[in-house]
Design a protein around this nucleic acid. Sequence first.
DNA 1: ACCTGAACACCGTTCAAGT
DNA 2: ACCTGAACACCGTTCAAGT
Lengths: 184, 184
Amino acid sequence: VPAPAHTSTAAVIAAGRALLERDGPDALTMRRVADAVGVRAPSLYKHVAGRDDLIRLILEDVADELTAILQEAVSMGAPRADVRRMTDAYRRFAGQNPAAYGLLFARGAPEGAVSRSQRSSAALLSAMTAIVGPADALPAARTVVAWAHGFIMMEQAGAFRLGGDIDTAWDFGIERILDALDTR
Amino acid sequence: VPAPAHTSTAAVIAAGRALLERDGPDALTMRRVADAVGVRAPSLYKHVAGRDDLIRLILEDVADELTAILQEAVSMGAPRADVRRMTDAYRRFAGQNPAAYGLLFARGAPEGAVSRSQRSSAALLSAMTAIVGPADALPAARTVVAWAHGFIMMEQAGAFRLGGDIDTAWDFGIERILDALDTR
DNA sequence: ACCTGAACACCGTTCAAGT
DNA sequence: ACCTGAACACCGTTCAAGT
C-alpha cells in the first residue's frame, strides 16, 4: 500500500532556503526543515541525500537564478553599459540572497553549485572582449568579478566602517576600473 | 588545595587555530581542542567562555598578525609601491591562513576581530591619499581592498576556472586599478 | 584554582517497522 | 512508496564533586 507523499524535493529545498536566509547556516538543520514541511527528519532522506546535498541543491537553484539575472542584464548594446548593468544586478541579487550568496562563494562550496555559477562568466567575458580585446579579456573579467565580489562580501560583513557612502564607493570603484580597462 | 593548570588560554587558542586550518571550521569542536591540549572539554570553559569566544580569540590573533604584516609592508617611500607591497603581503597572509581569513571576513564574523582588522586601514588610507588626494582616498582604498579581498576569496574557493595564470591576473588587476586611480 | 564524569538538549543519520 | 519512532555517535554547555 503506497503512502502519500507529504512533501517533495522542491518543498524541502524551498524550506531550507528560507531557513538559511532567515536564520543563517547554523539554523539550517534537518529537523527544522522537516518541521517546516510537516514531516519528521528521517523522511527528508527520501527527498534529499542529506544536509550537504540539501545545501548543494539550494545553492544550485541560487546559481541558476544568478545566471539568469546576469543574462537578462545584457542588452548586446554598448559593452561598457552591459558590464555596468551586470555588476549592479549582481550586487542586487547578492543583497537579496545574502546567506546563500555567502555560501556559494565560500571555501568548500559544493562543486555542482560553483560550476553552475560559472555559466554567467561567458556573457561578462564577451563584453570584456569588446572592451579590452581578446588578449586581456580573461584577466580583465577577473578584475571586475573579484572587485564586485569583494565589495559585496565586505559590505555584507559590515567591514566598511570609516563612514562615507557605500553606493558612492560602488559607483567610484566600477567606473574607475572600467576607465582603466577601456583604453582602446 | 589548588590544582595545577594543565593548559592555558594561549594553548587553547593555538590548538583551536591549528585544528581550524588543518581540518576546517566544522572540525573546530570543544572536545577536539580539549584532546589536543590534554584536558576534557568542560575544562576549556576555565580558559575561554565557549566555542564562539574561542573563535573570536583566534580571529583577533589573526587580525593582529595581519595588521602587523601590513604595517611592515609600508616603507614610507613611493605610495604606489607601498600599496603594491601591502596587497601582495595581504594575499600571502591569506594564503597561509586560509580558513581563519575566510572566517574573519565572512558574514557574522565576531565584532572584536573585525574591528581589530580595521586597524590596518590607516596605512592604506594614507598611501591612497598620496595617490588620489584626500577627496577620493576613501572610495579608492575601498576599491583596492574590495578587489584584493574578492580576488583572494575566489582564488581560495577555486572559482577561477577558465584557465590562465592566476598570478598574472593578480598583477594585471592591481596594476590596472592603480593606473586608474593614479592620474594626478 | 583547575579538572572531571555525568547529564542535558541538541545535531546528522540509519534502520526496522508501519501504512 | 513514503513516513515514523527509536537508536547511535556526535556536538556545546552546565554543574556538582573531586583534588
